[in-house]
């Protein structure tokens, strides 16, 4: 299974594109943040596909986005 590319995504429906990206992202997110990986992956999937493809190729970008998502989640939970 090679890297996911924009060309591979372009042949799929918008819903399938998020599905394909989620399948690649989830294990990576889980390795960074095991407890909230499903929620964080859902949050990340709302971003642009081009940004998600970049994160799949750049562990540093992914990590910083996961950190940001954790911050957003914690702030949200603190408000409730």
């Amino acid at each position: 299974q090679g890297p996911l590319t924009a060309t591979m995504l372009s042949s799929a429906s918008p819903e399938e594109q998020k599905e394909m990206l989620g399948e690649r992202l989830f294990p990576l997110v889980r390795s960074i943040q095991p407890t909230k990986a499903s929620k964080i992956t859902g949050m990340l999937l709302e971003l642009d596909n081009s940004e998600l493809l970049h994160m799949l190729e750049s562990p540093e970008s992914l990590r910083s986005m996961v950190d940001e998502a954790i911050g957003v989640l914690q702030a949200h939970q603190a408000e409730e």
Binding site: E23, F26, G42, M43, L45, E46, G71, H76
Partner: peptide
Amino acid sequence: KGAGLNPNAKVWQEIPQG
């Protein structure tokens, strides 16, 4: 900070393989 990240986003669910 966190622009574009929505804490109410749908939770990702892995589709079982096979």
